[in-house]
Design a protein around this nucleic acid. Structure first.
Lengths: 164, 164
DNA sequence: AGATACTTGCTTGCCACAAGCATCGGTTCC
DNA sequence: GGAACCGATGCTTGTGGCAAGCAAGTATCT
């Protein structure tokens, strides 16, 4: 009974959070050095910059986006010169996407800004709170990823989550 | 610094979470009894059902959506019969939106489903973890809301939904 | 041949911005 | 006192745009 309200509280906060963080994303100034890039492109850029060359398909499963979307976004990143494609020598159907020097700069700048945003947002928190929150959040994402349909993670080939 | 990575970790989880929860929303079956409602309509419905009659403008600030969007979604809800509008007697420009009986049923059903989802997702968590997480999450949303532009919330009494 | 890695065309959901309409509240003018 | 006016407010509607998925196509691998 009252247990309900506990879950309900979380559910409610989640709903609110999604909305708010969407707006947060939207209002952030992304350093794109004048290139007209979309928000999700930066998500991909950061994945690429952090975890080395990716195949498009690997990226797609990693961020839980349709391959077609990834294809377009990577295309945009490539046009903007933040990312470079090389055909996979072992399979010429596939491309390996990797970050360029410019791309890395842009990434670093955005990363710094993003981190600063969170430092600001979590200013009043104790280190323990931050730590616990991060841990629980990670755990939640884990469950979420497992629960989602189409999240057939085959261990081995895909080096998705866990990052650095 | 290592401090960076802590904030970075949270930031990263946030990004991931947004994506995942979008998919979670998308895969959820909303009880709409055959009415073709969009996802955000249910968000509004739940706000209306829980916190009584709302003015559209109050709803908009509450959920951090543009008034035009709210207007359309409420229109859809009204057409679907889940919600009813009455002109505010004290100000005939304004409408008070309130939930209908059917709307309440739909809301309850969705709420139950939503709660069940979270029970499932947080199955492995201890009560303490859930509680802490809920609290921190709430706090985070608070900071987020304050930080967002156009959120000129006064800390005192933030009940922007008096109206009635 | 059949699977795989991607690309491209199309549709849909969702959002914001801007212009417009009705109403309100206060001021001015008679 | 009341009519006329004026800017502010509550909402609606028109429009445009991004991002996501699906489906069909192309090239390549096995």
């Amino acid at each position: 009974m009252d247990d309900d309200t506990e879950y309900a509280a979380i559910g409610r906060q989640v709903g609110r959070f999604i909305r708010l963080s969407e707006r947060l994303f939207a209002t952030l100034k992304w350093s794109d050095a004048g290139r007209g890039l979309e928000r999700p492109a930066y998500m991909l850029l950061s994945r690429i910059a952090v975890d080395g060359p990716f195949r498009l398909s690997a990226l797609a499963t990693d961020v839980a986006l349709d391959l077609s979307t990834v294809s377009r976004q990577v295309g945009a990143l490539e046009t903007a010169g933040l990312v470079r494609r090389a055909t996979d020598p072992t399979d010429r159907r596939a491309s390996l996407v990797e970050v360029t020097d410019v791309g890395r700069d842009v990434f670093e700048e955005n990363r710094a800004r993003w981190i600063a945003t969170w430092q600001e947002l979590l200013a009043g928190w104790t280190p323990e709170e931050r730590q616990i929150f991060a841990a629980l959040f990670t755990q939640l994402n884990q469950s979420l990823a497992e629960r989602l349909p189409g999240a057939e993670r085959q261990p081995g080939t895909t080096s998705e989550r866990d990052a650095r």
